[in-house]
Amino acid sequence: MESLAPNAFSYLAVSIVMFAIGTIGVMTRRNGIVVFMCIELMLNAVNLSLVTFSRMHNDPTGSMLVFFVMCVAAAEAVVGLSIIIALFRNKLDIDINNLNIFKW
C-alpha cells in the first residue's frame, strides 16, 4: 500500500493524460459540440494540475486561479453553446469540416 501512495507526480500524470485525451478529441472529432466538450476536458485537466501545485506548496494562488478559471469556463460555455445554436439555425449542421464560411 505504501508504494501505491500518490505523490505530486501521480496527480500530474492523470492531469497530463486527460489533457492529451482532450487534445486528441479536438483534433479527431467532427461534431462541434463534442469538440467543445473536449476543450472543457482540457480546462479541467489544467485545473487539476493547478490544484496539485497549490497543495504541493501549501499556497492559495493555484486554488484561487482554479476558482477564476471555473467562472470564466462557465461564461465561455454559455457563449460557445449560443454560437453553436446560431450556427445550427443558419446552416442546420455543426460538423466542423463543413463550417468554412470564414475561409478565404
Binding site: 501512495a5 500518490p6 505523490n7 505530486a8 507526480f9 501521480s10 496527480y11 500530474l12 500524470a13 497530463i16 497549490s54 497543495r55 504541493m56 501549501n58 499556497d59 492559495p60 486554488s63
Partner: peptide, 17 residues
C-alpha cells in the same frame, strides 16, 4: 519534464482547501 516531482509526498494538511 515532470518526472522529478515524484519526490513530493503531499503530506501534512492543506490550509487553503
Amino acid at each position: 519534464v515532470f518526472r522529478g516531482l515524484s519526490a513530493y509526498k503531499l503530506e501534512g494538511s492543506f490550509e487553503y482547501g
